[in-house]
Amino acid sequence: MTRRWLVLAGVAVVLLVLAGWAVSRALRPSEAPAEASAANTELVPPTAGVRHITATLFYAGSDGQSLVPVRQEIVLAEGVVPQGREIVSAQLLRPRSPYVSVIPEGTRLRAFYVTDRGDAFVDLSPEVTSRHPGGSTAELLTVYALVNSVTANLPTIRRVQILIDGQEADTLAGHIDLRNPLERDTSIIKRP
């Protein structure tokens, strides 16, 4: 009798432990949205009923040496910083065909800040450099797709500084100087 009770008690303890593990797992905080949205997912317009804006994003021109502006609906956010996050997050995603992204796959937005002077800081995950193909042209397109997408859609932002993994960086791939905030450059934009 005692033995049967001991077995039943043991089973009950195991079940309780399993139930506790399942509950704690279900209640664990989810990862931040920016972390979850890797750049290999495709940019899709906001679902019906979600308030949105039409933003200009930048992708590789057909000559491989320029950027083309593309109008894209993205989620409306309240305030410059939340809207900046939405814009950069959309720029990091894979565009709809036939457009080609100039952002290395897997690049994520870690943070987006704005200073009183109108400088935005775009903090990206290390993939932006570790997966970059290199070459000054490809690097130029990556840098100015980001700088131009922020400055073209947020009129209060004049300059953009790119950070990598929370740190100031010399360059993404050995060419374009990232030590100072960069102004919008329209010289590499071509109309599609």
């Binding site: 000559d63 040496q65 000054s136 042209t137 490809a138």
Partner: peptide, 11 residues
């Protein structure tokens, strides 16, 4: 001295 790279393989 450098060598370049572009998203378009024809560049």
């Amino acid at each position: 001295l450098h060598l370049n790279s572009s998203p378009n393989p024809a560049s």
